Amino acid sequence: MKMTFEQVVDLASSGLRASGIDRKAAMETAQFLALAEADGLASHGLARVGQYASHAKNGRIELSAKPRATKYKTAAALVDACDGLAFPALKLATDLSVNLASKNGIGLVAVTNSHHFGVAGHYTEAAARAGYISLLFGNTPAAMPMAGGSKAIFGTNPLAAAFPVAKANPLVIDMSLSAVARGKLLVAAKKGESIPEGWALTIDGKPTTNPNEGLKGLMVPMGGDKGALLALIVELLVVGLSGSRFSYEADSFFDAQGNRPRIGQLLLTIDPGLAGGQVFANRMRDFLKVLASDAGVRLPGQRRFKQREIALAQGIDVGDAVLAEIQSGISRNWAK
């Protein structure tokens, strides 16, 4: 079914509100979920409404959380998400990090007591559009083993980076450190589809093409041991600077019942003017010219922006299964 961006926002917001989530948090979350749908990232779009609603009904999030900055240093701050949905906290943290960078050249903001934060690149993109270099790291409930191990220790621990480009869309690099984002298994499970071998393992560590077995088991690290070690870097940075839970201490997002995950995120925003004047912009221009000379090069983030442009003009395709799930949840207030 084709829906406008505004209709997707309204659908997601109504679904979240029906589970008892505060109106402001529901709306801010819905806007990010709709943006994910517009970008063609269904794994982080409307498919998450039912998940968040189930967490709300089972006490895994604070329904009326008000994120706040609790500690400051000259160019750094700590934001407490207060066990609520992560999107309002990350929005606050992004704005705060840009403000700190504008005053000090750099802004470091850690987020604690947080939850699933959607598409990491959306926050770094916002900072880049304001003219700043931005990096974001986050840990997630355990789904991947340490190098050489067989137990889930790390999450898929996504990271994103964005670089401003004069008079053009920024370059946005956004990836999880598993072979694919875990949300792709969620989408496949909802559609009743299989997944390619090499994405996930069963709880016994065997390759599987069943997304439900993969959600209960392990994700395969991107690049093998190197992906696991990158996940370790993210884990130590995020937990060490935010005081959040380690991945193995947070119950899975894909279970309706469990603890409040209280994971963390870390934003680093940098004023690119360190070398003076237009140095950064000129160096970016030179580099992009070289990339443009290779006809096969795909710039990171650009396919997403093209998909967004088309979706905003022609409508967003919403799957029947996820639409029915949300409409049913609204009509019965996500009753258990």
Score class of each variant (00 low, 15 high):
A313E: 14
G273F: 00
P272M: 07
T269R: 06
R262L: 03
P272W: 04
V290M: 12
F246S: 01
E235D: 02
L274A: 14
F246P: 01
G240R: 09
R298N: 11
L268I: 15
A275L: 13
A311F: 06
R308V: 15
I270L: 14
S247F: 03
R283V: 07
Q302R: 11
G301N: 10
N282K: 14
G258W: 07
L268F: 04
I270H: 06
L291Q: 12
L241Y: 07
R285L: 07
E249G: 06
S244P: 08
R303N: 14
N259Q: 04
A311N: 12
P261M: 09
R285C: 00
L299W: 01
N259Y: 07
L291C: 13
L274Q: 06
G240P: 05
I263E: 00
V279G: 00
A281W: 02
A311R: 02
L266Y: 05
D286K: 15
T269Q: 01
V290K: 11
E235S: 04
R298S: 10
A292V: 04
S244A: 15
G301M: 02
A295S: 13
R285E: 13
F287M: 15
T269F: 06
D251N: 10
V297G: 01
R308M: 14
G258C: 10
E235F: 06
G301V: 13
I270W: 04
R245D: 03
V239F: 05
G296F: 07
P261E: 04
V297R: 08
M284Q: 13
T269G: 05
T269L: 10
A292E: 13
I270Q: 02
L266C: 01
F305P: 03
K306Q: 14
S293T: 09
N282D: 15
Y248R: 05
N282Y: 01
V297Q: 08
A292W: 02
